[in-house]
Computed example of a mutant assay.
Amino acid sequence: MKKEKRKRSAMEKREARNFYLYTAPWLAGFLVLTLYPILYSFYLMFTNTDLTGTGQFIGFENLRYAFTDDTLFGKAFYNTIRYVVMFIPSSIILAFFIALLLSKRIKGLGFFRTAFYIPYITSGVAVTILWGWIFQKDFGIINYLLSLIGVQGPNWLGDKKVAMFAIVILSLWTIGNNIIIMLAGIQDIPQSYYESAQIDGAGAICQTFYITLPLSTPTIYFNLIVTVIAAFQIFQQPMILTNGGPLNSTYTAAMHLYNNGFLYGKMGYASMMAWSIFAVIMMITVVIVSSSKHWVFYDE
């Protein structure tokens, strides 16, 4: 009995040692490359530190400056929220219905699934430059197609009224990951539900809105949270296509963070911007999580 206890104790010690040994590289990387920068950026928010790392503690001066003197702070957040309001509902709806179509047994299904997913894994810079050509006012393919039916296309990237719509359209091109996740959720719904509905005489539309949609709400819930987090950090598309223009109509919070941190050298102010974006994302996420009990339905 004592020998068994000793063997068990030695095995537990060996397993514990191996656990710490194997997780040590990840733990060290997390502490040095993730946790420390997060905590240090929180400290920088209360300083006027520049790119050289020198600065003084100034308390809430960065926040005061943002809300009273920085005219681009409010504009950047307004544009970001405007983008979020347009992009998130359209991306969730589009991802659901495309996934619904991809869940059907049709010829060439593998090709279509691949085609919708490829834009997501393609280089973001390359895709953005490609869409810059597509949106070109005089020679872009969109305006050319519109001209064939006698419609004069807008100046997609040069008109402040439509530039953000162009950014949203580009972003919708790259929702392949949401589509795949939604497709997995739809395929996980038991077929017995559809068979029972068919016996009761329910058509395809009724099955979609009374079976597929309610039982897809857990997947929609996940996609919604992930998309909110990503949408508030929109940076690459407006930076490459318009550089925030025209007249700052596509100038986002992430761009303001980047410009202050790396162009103007205001790392303290940029850290305040980063935590402001985090605070907004956190508040919206809390609202979504709190409301999920009213609209997310699980199989059980």
Rank of each mutant, 00 (worst) to 15 (best):
66 A>W: 01
54 T>W: 14
66 A>N: 03
59 G>M: 08
79 N>T: 02
35 L>R: 08
100 L>W: 14
101 L>K: 10
92 I>E: 03
59 G>F: 09
80 T>F: 02
100 L>P: 03
68 T>E: 15
105 R>Y: 14
43 Y>W: 14
58 I>K: 06
66 A>D: 06
71 T>N: 09
90 S>R: 01
67 F>P: 08
87 F>W: 06
65 Y>W: 13
92 I>A: 02
87 F>Q: 04
75 K>Y: 04
86 M>S: 00
89 P>V: 04
38 I>N: 08
45 M>V: 07
46 F>A: 10
35 L>F: 10
79 N>V: 01
84 V>T: 02
41 S>N: 14
74 G>I: 00
87 F>I: 02
43 Y>R: 13
64 R>G: 12
106 I>W: 09
36 Y>V: 12
95 A>N: 05
69 D>M: 13
95 A>L: 08
101 L>P: 06
85 V>D: 00
32 V>K: 07
78 Y>G: 13
68 T>A: 11
104 K>Y: 06
98 I>Y: 10
41 S>A: 15
99 A>I: 07
36 Y>C: 08
35 L>S: 07
39 L>Q: 11
49 T>S: 12
60 F>V: 12
94 L>G: 07
82 R>D: 05
103 S>Y: 09
69 D>Q: 15
86 M>G: 00
49 T>Y: 13
94 L>A: 12
82 R>I: 03
96 F>S: 04
87 F>M: 02
68 T>K: 12
94 L>Y: 05
32 V>E: 10
96 F>L: 10
89 P>I: 03
58 I>R: 06
40 Y>C: 11
48 N>K: 13
68 T>H: 14
90 S>E: 10
62 N>C: 05
41 S>E: 11
61 E>W: 11
66 A>V: 03
93 I>W: 00
52 T>Q: 11
45 M>Y: 01
102 L>S: 05
78 Y>Q: 12
87 F>C: 01
38 I>V: 15
102 L>H: 06
105 R>M: 10
67 F>Q: 07
91 S>V: 00
106 I>Y: 10
63 L>F: 15
39 L>F: 15
73 F>Q: 09
31 L>Y: 03
34 T>Y: 14
79 N>R: 08
71 T>M: 14
55 G>N: 09
70 D>N: 11
104 K>R: 12
36 Y>P: 05
49 T>D: 09
66 A>Q: 01
74 G>N: 03
84 V>N: 00
44 L>G: 07
61 E>S: 13
106 I>Q: 06
90 S>D: 08
37 P>R: 09
75 K>I: 08
34 T>Q: 13
32 V>D: 12
95 A>H: 04
101 L>H: 06
70 D>W: 09
100 L>I: 04
30 F>Y: 15
53 G>T: 06
100 L>T: 14
37 P>C: 10
92 I>H: 00
80 T>N: 05
87 F>P: 02
40 Y>W: 15
59 G>H: 09
61 E>M: 10
51 L>T: 10
88 I>K: 01
66 A>F: 03
